[in-house]
């Protein structure tokens, strides 16, 4: 067996790789310079009146998914359903009944950012997003 240290067809291989990289990164080139407008999630009157969420706004923005993950584990697996904030306020750990009670405008609150970031959380496959309408 020949074991020479040559990359056969080196030129072709490298050219192929370059084409591959360009193709894979095409979406970036295509969208370059055409930044979509930054999403502007809207607060409902109720949310504005509350002033504070279960945690400070900046933290919520970045880590609400981790908080929700912790909530669901606590509710489902540990039978603990009440969240007490550092300043002693209590909340029922429920996406539909607590989060969406204030943020009842899912389209203008949750979806604007999720669409911008192209994430599709499947929370809503099970959790009801229109609690109030469903009740009527």
């Amino acid at each position: 067996m020949n074991n020479t240290k040559t990359l056969y067809d080196g030129g072709k291989v490298i050219t192929g790789l370059v084409i591959f990289v360009i193709l894979v990164t095409l979406p970036f080139w295509y969208n370059h310079g055409k930044a979509a407008p930054e999403p502007q999630p809207q607060l409902t009157a109720k949310a504005k009146a509350e002033k504070a969420c279960v945690r400070p706004k900046s933290i919520m923005k970045a880590t609400h998914m981790q908080i929700l993950n912790g909530w669901r584990n606590n509710v489902v697996r540990n039978a603990r359903r009440i969240w007490e904030t550092a300043d002693g306020k209590r909340f029922n750990m429920s996406l539909s009944k607590t989060c969406l009670d204030c943020h009842s405008n899912k389209e203008k609150f949750c979806d604007t950012c999720h669409n911008y970031a192209a994430v599709a959380p499947y929370c809503w496959d099970c959790h009801i997003d229109k609690v109030k309408e469903a009740k009527e």
């Binding site: 912790g70 540990n78 603990r80 009440i82 904030t85 550092a86 300043d87």
Partner: peptide
């Protein structure tokens, strides 16, 4: 975070 608790009713 410190101070936060999860409780049973």
């Amino acid at each position: 975070a410190p101070g936060e608790k999860v409780l049973k009713s």
